[in-house]
């Protein structure tokens, strides 16, 4: 299996997606192209550059610990694919056990 095909399979599992075989072929090809481009970036010598996660010289942006009103439950919950008056409803999350 090609590297990009393996990546697609791995991401499918991590992201809990279901991808059809046709889609897999298409995505593999696209991801392959992206990887190739990133490899190109690897040609650049960055040994003397510190890893940068923020480019602005700004730190410690904080806010006061004082409450502000939340939004109404009714308005948010109606955006959920499934909900009752109080809760979001999701497929059952049951942790499976086995005696050992």
């Amino acid at each position: 299996m090609s590297d990009s095909k393996q990546i697609v399979n791995h991401v499918e599992k991590l992201a809990l997606l279901e991808i059809s075989p046709e889609e897999k072929d298409r995505f593999s090809e696209q991801i392959g192209k992206i990887l190739k481009f990133v490899e190109k970036l690897n040609e650049l010598d960055t040994t003397k550059i510190k890893p940068t996660s923020h480019i602005l010289p700004v730190q410690n942006v904080t806010r006061r610990d004082s409450p502000v009103p939340s939004i109404s439950r009714e308005n948010v919950i109606k955006l959920a694919p499934e909900a009752n008056n109080e809760f979001y409803i999701v497929p059952p999350v049951i942790q499976e056990f086995q005696e050992a």
Partner: peptide, 12 residues
């Protein structure tokens, strides 16, 4: 998560 009958409920 609150586990119900065949579904789970989420309180955020």
């Amino acid at each position: 998560l609150i586990h119900g009958d065949g579904v789970s409920y989420v309180d955020f």
